[in-house]
């Protein structure tokens, strides 16, 4: 897509809402060096969100959208969940497929884009909850890894089906109770980052969204590797403060606690991925 698409005709500019004018004048397009440090100065690609106040998923959104190296040519495939109503507020192409089949839809989109625009770089990024990625959609997620689809998958792991009121998912840790899972989870948390490695992902990272700069780094690495090598996977802890009974200002505190244990920063890359990352660093893009 051409960045020109965001240029408003002067004759009609005065009729446009300020938020749209800002997208032209103050957003960061066409600059792969864009990142979270632009957040205080630039127009964000997310206008507002419909999540609970203080929900860490909103922070994750802001950091990811600020870090995409090629937003004007990025398609986001999302899924049903707390985040679904946020996507319409994002100034990018987003596709909402059936719950759980986001990686299949993303695979198709990526292949068609490669065929239709062979000379252009088009990134396809999946953003979906743990229920969608690890539970109901696990088949589609893993199959896309097996097939070596050149897409990036980002899982917002809040360890629960939050949007449907709190049922346990594959990502819920053993013993954890929720409103609609009062007996407590019976089995262990699915180590999705390990499954991703075993299924053929070339870059895998696990972390919470407590550090914006870290999120930027892993998002950029995952996208660059997916472009050239194959599937990449990012597992983000975005706790559901509502379901675990925290206040709006406690999300960061919660993530920092888990940074020391089950969401300790973890990164894996294949040799081919290392090559790409090394080159991108030399180019000053990481």
């Amino acid at each position: 897509m051409s960045v020109k698409i965001f240029k408003i005709n002067e004759d009609l500019k005065e009729f446009m809402p300020q938020e749209i004018v800002d997208l032209e004048e103050k957003a960061t397009w066409g600059n792969p060096k864009r990142g979270v440090m632009d957040l205080p100065y630039s127009k964000e690609l997310i206008e507002e969100h419909s999540l609970c106040a203080g929900c860490p998923e909103s922070a994750a959104f802001r950091y990811i959208l600020a870090s995409l190296p090629n937003p004007e040519d990025t398609v986001i495939v999302n899924s049903t969940g707390c985040t679904s109503l946020v996507f319409p507020h994002i100034a990018l192409h987003t596709v909402h497929p059936l719950f759980g089949n986001q990686n299949s839809v993303a695979s198709g989109i990526k292949r068609v884009l490669e065929w239709r625009f062979p000379d252009k770089v088009k990134d396809v990024v999946v953003i979906a909850g743990d229920g969608a990625t690890i539970d109901i959609g696990l088949d589609c997620t893993l199959q896309s890894f097996f097939r070596q689809e050149k897409i990036t998958t980002i899982c917002f792991d809040n360890e629960v089906y939050a949007n449907t009121g709190g049922q346990d998912s594959g990502a819920t840790p053993k013993g954890m109770e929720f409103k609609m899972a009062p007996g407590g989870k019976q089995w262990d948390k699915v180590p999705m980052w390990q499954l991703a490695i075993d299924s053929g992902c070339h870059y895998v990272a696990r972390l919470s969204v407590s550090s914006p700069k870290k999120v930027e780094q892993v998002v950029k690495k995952a996208i660059y590797v997916a472009r050239e090598v194959g599937p990449t996977y990012i597992h983000l802890y975005t706790p559901c403060i509502l379901e675990i009974g925290l206040n709006a200002d406690q999300g960061l505190w919660e993530m920092r606690q888990r940074d020391k244990e089950r969401f300790k920063f973890f990164e894996y890359m294949t040799d081919e991925a290392k090559e790409v990352i090394k080159r991108k660093k030399e180019e000053g893009l990481l």
Partner: peptide, 22 residues
């Protein structure tokens, strides 16, 4: 109600059309 094809300056025709819409 002008839509994106005349609101944005994505080609010369769009620029001309915007003037005419006004």
């Amino acid at each position: 109600f002008p839509g994106p094809q005349v609101l944005y300056a994505w080609n010369e025709e769009a620029k001309r059309k915007a003037k005419f819409v006004r």
